[in-house]
Amino acid sequence: MLNIKNLHARLEQKEILRGINLQVNPEEIHAILGPNGSGKSTLGRVLVGDEKYEKTEGKMTLEGRNFDEMDSAERAQAGFFLSFQSPPEIDGVSAKELLLAAKKALDKDFRSSFRLKKELSENLKKLHLSDEFMTRDVHKGASGGERRKMEMASLLTIDPKIAFLDEIDSGIDVDAMKAIATAIQEFMKRKGKALILVSHTEKLLQMIQPTHFHVLCAGTIVQSGGQEIMERVHQCGFCDFIQEKKKNSQLKVVS
């Protein structure tokens, strides 16, 4: 479904992604772990087409369609969704208006603001947000937890093929975490969906049970595998992986 090959990208003069390879298939949940500044959020930004980042090498495709030939809106229309780590406040535009415009962009035949309202209201309820969030300015004056829950309600409403959730669980209380986990599970129950999850907290990962784990260090994936990776990170942190990587690269230089 989503195929990332040898992806290199930089922000201004600084190279952040240095050759990422990742293949995500339907029904899979990929958790990306890694220390701060390793490039996790950058990966999401490059995937969504943030022009601040310059892709210098590599290829990203979604169901065979090359992201290089698509702008951010077209990537979203093709089925890619990014939840923002710090979603911005938007003056004078409500979630209802924003998501109606989004639905219309994704589906030319979608016109019913009534249907959107009903769907959004149901999804807000699942995240324990009141209907008030439908009409007030998007993210305006909302807490971190409310913003993240709103991102999840948006995800359920937009219904993309694949979502990249960037620290959807940071700085939220247990109840919010549960609501978000339940929403993720509901999304994954829908047919053919896939997920990439950037997270620092073990709690959410335990609830979600990702199918794949990757450790990202200094812009490359240094280790991929299953559940055992999370346990290793939990016990020894990322130092282990970083040391291993250094060793490997030294070996490469020697050979």
């Binding site: 969704f81 923002f84 998501l99 962009a105 948006s154 937009i158």
Partner: peptide, 19 residues
């Protein structure tokens, strides 16, 4: 943010200005 939801640049700018 608007574009990441599938909304094209021109529509997005119009909505931001209206907002």
């Amino acid at each position: 943010y608007f574009q990441s939801r599938g909304i094209d640049e021109e529509t997005a700018k119009g909505m931001i200005v209206n907002g």
